[in-house]
């Protein structure tokens, strides 16, 4: 029960930075979806938020690129990018929850990295700006390397989610879980602007059908064809593992060309 809410959302910076760039109505529909998620999360009365996002060279570089890193800090500054138009500030951390989740993962054979200092970038702050705009709830960020090769396989992300889900079953805190990233996009690449709605919608269908083999079967080569940013679906896969046994309910999907990203929202019940 202590997993009280789970959702998966896109975090493309344009959602805040260039809010009015999309065609009329598109932004409103996405924002309405975020508001529906906020209401659901608030109704679940969580104590803390575990938010899973991806690295964008904000915390880590190639001198040391961890596959999975959980924050253990008392507080986190963000967003590091002033241009995303979210007021910079601090979110409280929940180091006690972090420690329990880390230990449970180690016990399950998944040795996450941990960081007592971590900054939040648009990847975590875009979703939090909707779900907890007043920064009331402590957060535990978990950052996946979905950026440079080698990166964790989809199946491993799911297994990490399962281990976290098992840990949350025993947790005393009421925890909301958020996956942030994707769907198809290719920031800064020659194919910038590429959005593969067919892929995105099929990925969502696989999650809704709870077809674990299918949604963990994507290879790096397949995903790279769609744009490197698409690797961020790993966060969604991890949250599917956390929410195993719950039904994924798609809330929104549109290719938003002004933000060069296939944007989706989904929750579990």
């Amino acid at each position: 029960m202590p997993l009280v809410f789970a959702c998966s959302v896109s975090h493309t910076p344009g959602i805040r930075a260039w809010a009015d760039a999309p065609e009329p109505g598109q932004k409103d529909r996405l924002y309405a979806g975020f508001e529906a998620l906020r209401e659901r999360m608030e109704a679940a009365n969580p104590d803390s938020i575990l938010i899973i996002s991806s690295e964008h060279f904000a915390n880590f570089f190639l001198d040391c690129m961890p596959a999975f890193t959980m924050g253990q800090a008392d507080s986190y500054f963000g967003p590091v990018e002033p241009w995303v138009k979210i007021e910079q500030g601090f979110n409280a951390g929940d180091p006690e929850l972090s420690e329990r989740l880390l230990n449970a993962c180690y016990e399950a054979g998944i040795e996450l990295n941990y960081a007592h200092e971590m900054k939040l970038d648009h990847g975590t702050m875009i979703p939090l700006s909707f779900l907890d705009p007043a920064r009331k709830l402590p957060v535990v960020p978990l950052i996946i390397n979905a950026m440079t090769y080698p990166m964790p396989r989809q199946r491993r992300c799911y297994e990490l989610g399962q281990a976290l889900g098992n840990a949350l079953d025993k947790e005393t805190r009421r925890v909301a879980v958020v996956a942030a990233g994707g769907l198809s996009h290719a920031p800064g690449e020659r194919i910038h602007g590429n959005i593969d709605s067919e892929f995105d919608e099929e990925f969502i269908r696989r999650l809704v059908a709870n077809d674990v083999d299918a949604f963990t079967s994507y290879t790096d080569e397949e995903i790279e064809q769609l744009g490197l940013g698409t690797h961020e679906i790993r966060a969604w896969v991890a949250v599917a593992g956390i929410a195993e046994g719950r039904q994924a309910k798609p809330l929104f999907y549109e290719p938003i060309t002004a933000w060069a990203t296939g944007c989706g929202l989904l929750y579990y019940e």
Binding site: Y149, E189, I191, N194, E224, Q225, L228
Partner: peptide, 14 residues
């Protein structure tokens, strides 16, 4: 559509 794989995407490439 050109694949990023085809042009030696350094840290991220074939």
């Amino acid at each position: 559509m050109e694949s990023a794989l085809g042009r030696g995407r350094g840290i991220g490439g074939a």
